[in-house]
Design a protein around this nucleic acid. Structure first.
Lengths: 195, 195
DNA sequence: GACGGCCATCCTACTAGAAGGTAGGCTGAC
DNA sequence: GTCAGCCTACCTTCTAGTAGGATGGCCGTC
């Protein structure tokens, strides 16, 4: 039973949801072993150290994010729709405790106590996300679909920060609605040609 | 040596900066004992359990925040200036590792693994901050100093989320500038009577 | 097709150190 | 005399990580 990459994948999936719940120091090999139904030592077989596990997890997460964005761009040629699809994706995740936060955003809060290898991956995700949002805003402005006062870059940073802050507020209040309340006006404000 | 409340206060101050660095599970009594120059057992004398310590810390933090806002309102009667003073306060904090993040915002990220007593305090801070921002925005709109499309409440939630997200981005990039890049347009957008 | 080696997977059993916390004794100020 | 403050010494549980053994599938060889 269990295909070749099955167990390692299950460990990563489990670790991911545990990180989303409590961050890097908020979970242990023992926690994973309970959920996956495997001994601690067996986890060390797949991932020699905790840093190995989390770094692998992050590399995979970033690949998934990149693939997700590529898919999103195929489905939605319009920049406005792309922004809506992005926030819509997270709005759908917010309700599910195992995916209600961006892993990189959560780890970013703990950067001062994180192993440097992990920090590298987290930084890379922020840069990639910011670059994509900047490109979307630039494209939207060129096509006359979006309008904003500052640079595309600063506007993208503001957008990203607001989305992350919205995740945080949803968690703080224990109210999923807050995410939509914050993110929906965010896009409407950028759409060109409103009163 | 050490005045009456001296040691307990030093412990709290130390714990606060440790939480800002790595959250609830990111510090231990041993860490505090090293910094303060006191034995672990002596910390337990002042704060029997970790929950006691952090709850006390949060109660004090919330009082300080309340006092700070009251002071801020005395110095700045104008709602626009109040918003600027608020973000300006955090802009000044961002550079200092011991105060570069709101303790409650950082703890909020770990709510699923936090003791319930701590969650209560964190929630209370978010509600208080949101209520204050809502009041400022309402007052600003009444006086014709601020203009926005949604309700004052939803606008306040968006403002707070953006500020928290800006703290996160500054930490993620390791670049203090990002905080200002995100928060400055935030206020300018709300100021009434622009082109 | 049987044989033997190889290797991935998972196990039991263990380690050293760190976690939060306790018991009880000393000291010095009021 | 009492008690706050701090200490040494200790406890239990959890932490990541290690050593080494069982199992079992896959390989080429005869």
């Amino acid at each position: 039973m269990g295909n070749i990459a099955g167990t390692a994948d299950e460990i990563i999936r489990c670790a991911r949801s545990l990180i989303i719940a409590g961050g890097y120091n908020g979970f242990s090999y023992a926690d994973i072993s309970e959920v996956v139904g495997i001994r601690k030592a067996s986890i060390h077989h797949h991932f020699p150290s905790k840093v190995d596990l989390v770094r692998t997890l992050l590399v995979q997460y970033r690949q998934e994010a990149e693939a997700g964005i590529a898919e999103l761009e195929r489905h939605h040629p319009d920049p406005v729709d792309q922004l809506r699809a992005y926030t819509g994706y997270w709005a759908a995740c917010i309700g599910d405790p195992t995916s209600s936060f961006c892993v990189c955003a959560l780890l970013a809060t703990q950067i001062p106590v994180l192993p440097p290898e992990i920090v590298l991956e987290v930084r890379a995700h922020f840069r990639a996300l910011s670059a994509w949002l900047t490109a979307v805003l630039e494209k939207g402005a060129q096509r006359g679909r979006l309008a904003f006062s500052g640079t595309a870059r600063s506007e993208a940073e503001g957008f990203m920060a607001a989305v992350h802050g919205a995740m945080l507020s949803a968690r703080a209040y224990g109210d999923d609605q807050v995410f939509r309340v914050v993110t929906e006006p965010l896009i409407e404000r950028l759409v060109a040609g409103r009163p």
